[in-house]
Amino acid sequence: MSWAQSTCIGLWGKSPVACASTRSHLMRKMMEYLYKLCGQEYLGFSNATFQSERDTGDRNFAIGYYLKEKKCFPEGTDLITCLDFYFQLCSIEVTCESASVLVATLANGGICPITGEHVLSPEAVRNTLSLMHSCGMYDFSGQFAFHVGLPAKSGVCGAILLVVPNVMGIVCWSPPLDKLGNSVRGIHFCQELVSVFNFHNYDNVRHFVKKLDPRREGGEVKAKTVINLLFAAYSGDVSAMRRFALSAMDMEQKDYDYRTALHVAAAEGHVEVVRFLLESCKVNISPKDRWGNTPMDEAVRFGHQEVVQLLQEYDGKFVPARKNGKNTTTSEENLEGMV
């Protein structure tokens, strides 16, 4: 049991005077905890908001008394004091900057990215993000999960706290609200964000429309894919080549010396790999490397007659695909032969 849970249970069963003292202590602890989540950035309290919440919280009082009638609280609970504590929590102030650090801490598995302090356990982060994903946007939560697919929490002040797990936390603030109490522009921003970047929870399923992925380091990832592709061609691993093609990898990628997988497979005499590249991936049959050599030149040089015959058979059959008015060929456009 956490300190917050044990203190709350103590708060429920105490006298009004003891409850006020315990509530004050608990509020200080909560502020200290949130201060760590915000990376020591701004955190304040609005007494005017607290008074307003208390004076206009009829629905919260009604829900509280209904829950009390249904025996949802321990015996002897001081409901008014508990609601006061809730109203105090609703009156905590943050800026967009400090709140963004808070949600970045959630995105970072509970470790504050500014201070490096381990504030939350991974289990607590998982449970928090699950709640945000399922009910963080009031009655719009289902549609938000469908269209945006990210855990978020909105407030009637016009703020939306958005978490992109393992990437970043975002806070946007725009006061005009829709009929459900969410920021109109904030929701529009979130929808536009996932329309450009592959942040939606299900954007990365295989064969899905490719979006920008800022999590990838372009040069490093490209180098790794080229190495993996050429090594599979070198070792004659047709299964690996098929996996690469199905994941929409460009099967005509070139290394530093402008050598392609077809060059390597032809030089090593791997007939099945050459056949797969020509039949299923429809790659260019005569790309030239740094020295002007084609796959046919490689097959002839190393005496792989079966590969030479196969290349001769497919010579002249290559037709570049047209994309944006230009002649290009990508494996993504040539997968029809594999499906």
Rank of each mutant, 00 (worst) to 15 (best):
Ser2Gln: 02
Ala4Pro: 00
Gln5Leu: 15
Gln5Phe: 08
Ser6Arg: 12
Ile9Cys: 08
Ile9Tyr: 15
Leu11Asp: 08
Val17Asn: 03
Thr22Phe: 01
Arg28Val: 09
Glu32Ile: 01
Tyr33Ser: 11
Leu37Tyr: 01
Ala48Arg: 10
Ala48Gln: 13
Ser52Asp: 14
Arg59Ser: 13
Asn60Ala: 14
Ala62Tyr: 03
Tyr66Pro: 00
Tyr66Val: 07
Lys68Thr: 06
Lys71Gly: 10
Cys72Ser: 13
Gly76Glu: 04
Thr77Tyr: 03
Cys90Lys: 03
Glu93Trp: 00
Val94Gln: 08
Cys96Val: 11
Glu97Asn: 05
Ser98Val: 01
Ala99Thr: 04
Ala99Arg: 04
Ser100Ala: 12
Val101Thr: 07
Gly110Ile: 00
Cys112Ala: 04
Ile114Thr: 14
Gly116Trp: 10
Glu117His: 07
Arg126Ala: 09
Thr128Met: 10
Ser130Ala: 15
Leu131Met: 11
Cys135Thr: 13
Gly136Ser: 07
Gly136Ala: 09
Ala145Arg: 14
Phe146Pro: 00
His147Trp: 02
Val148Lys: 04
Ala152Lys: 05
Ala159Cys: 10
Asn166Ala: 11
Ile170Lys: 02
Ile170Trp: 06
Pro175Lys: 12
Pro175Leu: 05
Pro176Gln: 07
Pro176Asn: 06
Pro176Leu: 04
Gly181Gln: 02
Gly181Asn: 06
Gly186Ser: 00
Ile187Tyr: 03
Ile187Asn: 01
His188Leu: 07
Gln191Asp: 01
Val194Lys: 12
Val194Pro: 08
Val194Ala: 09
Asn198Ser: 15
Asn201Trp: 00
Asn204Arg: 15
Arg206His: 11
Lys210Gly: 06
Glu217Phe: 09
Glu220Thr: 10
Val221Ile: 11
Ala223Thr: 11
Val226Asn: 07
Val226Ala: 06
Leu229Glu: 13
Leu230Pro: 13
Phe231Arg: 13
Ala232Asn: 15
Ser235Gln: 14
Gly236Ser: 07
Asp237Ile: 09
Asp237Asn: 15
Val238Cys: 11
Val238Trp: 03
Ser239Leu: 12
Ala240Cys: 12
Met241Asp: 04
Arg242Ala: 08
Arg242Glu: 10
Met249Tyr: 07
Asp250Phe: 06
Lys254Thr: 10
Arg259Val: 13
Thr260Val: 08
Ala267Ser: 12
Ala267Val: 01
Gly269His: 05
Arg275Val: 02
Lys288Ala: 13
Lys288Gly: 08
Asp289Ala: 12
Trp291Glu: 12
Asn293Val: 03
Pro295His: 07
Met296Arg: 11
Met296Ile: 03
Asp297Ala: 14
Glu298Asp: 05
Ala299Glu: 05
Val308Arg: 07
Tyr314Thr: 07
Lys317Ile: 00
Asn327Gln: 11
Thr328Pro: 00
Thr329Met: 05
Glu333Gly: 03
Leu335Gly: 00
Glu336Lys: 12
